[in-house]
Structures are given as C-alpha cells and as structure tokens.
Design a protein around this nucleic acid. Sequence first.
DNA 1: GTACAGGTTAGAGTGTGCTCTAAGTCAAGC
DNA 2: GCTTGACTTAGAGCACACTCTAACCTGTAC
Lengths: 122, 122
Amino acid sequence: MNIKAFSKVTELSPYTIRYYEKAGLLRSIKRNSSGHRAFTESDVAWARFIKRLKETGMTIENIRKYAELREKGEHTSEQRMRMLEEHAITLKNKIALENNHLQKLEEKIDYYAGLIHTDLKA
Amino acid sequence: MNIKAFSKVTELSPYTIRYYEKAGLLRSIKRNSSGHRAFTESDVAWARFIKRLKETGMTIENIRKYAELREKGEHTSEQRMRMLEEHAITLKNKIALENNHLQKLEEKIDYYAGLIHTDLKA
DNA sequence: GTACAGGTTAGAGTGTGCTCTAAGTCAAGC
DNA sequence: GCTTGACTTAGAGCACACTCTAACCTGTAC
C-alpha cells in the first residue's frame, strides 16, 4: 500500500503520515525498492489506534512514548496497559466535566427560551 | 477589582485576561483614574462563562461573536440561544464519540490485563 | 529518451491560543 | 523628589500539530 492508499483508508493526509513517521508515532514502515513507503494492514490498524488516542486528547509526545514501548515488544505490555489506564481516567474526568458543562449550557438555553417566550407574550 | 484579583478569582493569567480583552471576548471593561482595568462581579461571571465555552471546545473566534451579540443587548438573545444550541449539539456529539473511544480503550486495557495474567500462569 | 505521475527529503510556514518582553506611566511610602 | 511595585501598551515569541514548498528521484508510457 503506497502513501496515497494509506492516506485514503486512514483519513490522514500524506503530510500528516510523514509527520507521524518523523515524530516516531508510525515506526518501522517498510520501503519498496524505489524508497517509497509500503504500508501494511497492521500499519492501518495502528494508525487508527493513533487516531483514537489523538481524538481523546493524548498528545503526540505521549503517543510517541506508547509507540516506542510497542516497538520494544511484548514485555512492555504492562507499561502500555498502565499508560492506557491513566489515559482512560483522564478521559473519564474530561467526559464528566463536559457533561457538567453541557447541563449548564442547556440551563442557559432554557433561560433564553424563557426570555423569548416572554417577549412573544408581551 | 484590579487585574491581579480578577486573575485570582477567574484563574486566568493577567496575560490571558489582556489577550481576551484585545480579542474582543472581555468587552467594555472599566478603567480607573490611572488607566488600570477595574473589573466588576459581572465581569467575573462572564469570564467564567467564557471558560466554560472554552472548556467545551468553542474557539476564541466563536466566543468573540457571542460576546459581540451580548454587548449589543437583549434583542440578540435569540441569536445567542441559537449559537448555544448549536454548540450543545456539537458537544453532545463530542461526548458520544469520547464515550465510544473510552469503551475501546477499556477493551484494550482488558486485553492487556489478560496477556499479563497469562504470563503469570505460564 | 523524455514527459509525467507520484513518490522522496529537509526545512520553512501556518493557525490557534496563549505567554512574554520592553518601554513606559502612575500612586504610595520614605 | 526618588524608589518601588503594580499596572499599561504594542508587538515579539512560543508550543503544538500540522501543512506546504523546493528540489530531487524513479518507474512507466509513449
């Protein structure tokens, strides 16, 4: 799979893909005889997991650390699990905060709705 | 209330406070006789609402638009309500996505936990 | 053999949201 | 009246995560 096809299936731009490799998120990407990147299905799965971590607010630097552990092999499983556990807690807190914010926004929306209703009656 | 006191109660740095004023988020902030900003309780409440919008992912530019409407007076209530409604929908979608991500993370954590358990048994 | 499509690299540029610097003003305490 | 400290401004600088540019290489089609 060349970079264009990989870009399509992962929905990451070729720029971003190269950036992720340079940054140490995508590692040991194979090359074909002319030096072009040759991505595998396993690379696709990993890129999708990177996206998940990103979308939950993990920084490039922390994803890089996780990727580094992952490359080192199975004996780093426990460390990776701990990273994910920590991240899951952070994410839970974030979601809780957002739910609280959402409630307040809805209260404010209701307040505005009341105002407008009153205007109509007047 | 001077900028230091306002900074303390809002938990925004003085740099950020000046930036928010320049950017049009904080508006019509009063000045004392020596040109220093003199914040009111109403400014505090508004700054806290700005923080809420920020923490739910609203951009400075959109908060600026909301602030502009707010300054124009009560006849903009409906527009502001619509902005908040749209934002609440975006936020709900974001939370839903994050909950989905969280579930997948927990599945992966369980997978790692299984691996480690197997190691111990072996 | 040459045009061209699609890759490669290093490194510069961009947008967002701050964060800091430099130079200056002002009021209070000695 | 001078130091000190807290403020003021315009504008530069920074961190993050891309995004793009310029110059170059390579394989295929004609």
